[in-house]
Design a protein around this nucleic acid. Sequence first.
RNA 1: GCCCCCGUAGCUCAAUGGACAGAGCACCAGUCUUCUAAACUGUAGGUUGUGCGUUCGAAUCGCACCGGGGGUACCA
Length: 583
Amino acid sequence: MFDDIKSQIALRIDAYCQQNDLPTGKVEFRSIPFSGEWGMAAPLFPLAAADPNKTGPVPQHAQHLAERLKDAIALPEGFTRSEAIRGYLNLYFDTALYAASVIDQINREGAQFGNAPAAGQTVMVEYSNPNTHKPLHVGHLRNVILGGSVCNILEASGNKVIRANYIGDIGLHVIKWMCNYELYHAGEQPGEDKMRWMADLYSEADRRFHEQEGFEELVRDYFARWDAGDEHIHDLWLETRQWSMEGFEQVYALLGEHFDRIYFESDVEESGKQLVDQLIESGLASDGRPEKPVIVDLDAILGTKEEFRVAVILRSDSTSLYATKELPLAIMKFEEYDLDQSIYVIDVRQSLHMKQMQKLLELMGYPWAKRIHHLAYEIVNLPGNVIMSSRDGTVVLLDDLVREATQRALAVVREKNPGIDATTMTDVALKVALGAIKYPMISRENTKIVTFDWENALDFNGQSAPYIQYANVRANSILRRADKPGAHKASFGYPLEPSEVNLIELLSKLPDEISRSAKEFKPSSLASYAYELAKAFNDFYNQCQVLKAEGEMRVSRLSLVQASKVCLEKTLNLLGIQAPQVM
RNA sequence: GCCCCCGUAGCUCAAUGGACAGAGCACCAGUCUUCUAAACUGUAGGUUGUGCGUUCGAAUCGCACCGGGGGUACCA
């Protein structure tokens, strides 16, 4: 916002510099910290340091220059005063004009506010990537929330986004599950909660595999029949995979996620093996079978040392690996869509593998290989640096977490707002619970480990999603009680409270915040912003009366509340968090 | 060994190279006859892991250490 005014003033400063033997292009504006008053500031240290005629230390000279510029630059329309202080040139806006133009723009654009115009870029984001026949736990949640939020943010900043999900539908875990099913649960059908049922059978199969005498043998035999193309097993696989997929759909629906394109691991296994053959023929890969696997010695090819290492692309027994399938999948994506960027939301432990895949695709001559980006994020731990593992029984199941959080949220709603009907109450509780669960997953930087603990996840106070949701509910509550919600034209022709100025300033930053978090694939910065915005609103709410105010103050404040609601809801939605209207 | 990530208040985390490093939780002291107290105000809490460098200016950039985590030829 107001970039044109900033550059206009920068031009005037440059003109002054040119006339006075000073270097140009050294002055840039930023916002002023701790302002109770809205304005912008230019540090003059770069100019001072570059001034050939400077006498004395830089800070003093910067202050001197700030004073000279303060006198020399005529204030453009909309500014009230300027000051030179501690080496900074500060310019202050006419508060009423500024406030009115920000708030009017927000209320005019509504939910579109902050969006960048379409840039014609197509981006695919691959995320979630669950294994069928296995449960989703809290560790997987971070991936889904992060990926979904990144998609939302990229869309808001003008990209066409394709949400892709790559499903692990083959492998030992699937065979284990089916073998156990046929032996001990033949003919059984999943109940209402498919995910839970599949998960229970999976842990049963896994337990037998490790503990039950002879079960592993049975699984190996079963695997051999699968490999031989046993029709019955194939049919069972399709049926049980579908159950899993329906279980995933239930979870995605709960979380508010959807996908545009589903890829199955089984779809790319054959093409992967063919690709390996081609790589051997072309000489890039060396075939060590039957004793050793098929590898690509990237360091040897590139002349690097312990940087890309050796990529293993096919087992010595000719069965496929992760890498075998990753290659054709990448190719398929670019053949199917004209992608400007292909993003993989995968945890940081796979960084080397991603690096190898990208380099290998590059060596294979695909020019788009450079447009692959691994969006690495850290895992979710349990307190004491315990990694979630289904083997050790340390997983926190999504189901349990959501149920517990919803119950707690319901208890709070019942206490705080007993008047609302039962349907609304459960709806609100679910939105609050999901928000509370999601927020810690995206409010930390991608590269930081999230430690899950129940106490924290179920805390609805302070720096949390419910805090932000509550601020929005308060805004909604005011608007609901006002006579004509939405029809308020701001003028701000009265002395604004610092809390109002602060709130308006934050509101004006939304477009910048969206583009910044899109550029860095960092929902966390937007999550911080959402919290700051809610805090600023609560401060305003506490200090300024709206409904009891009169005249243009009332009208202006109502429009400010309306704009706050627009921005709070927008930000929450970008983070994948729903905004209830009452709490 | 080599590579990547992390290290900021007791705990969990913020902070485009910019003004005095900020929040939440916990602790202590206050605020509901008021648009919903899931809120707000105040007190206290810091050698930004250590050292050297770059810079007018470093939590932020570089180098070297220390501590923790992860990866490193047939798991994904």
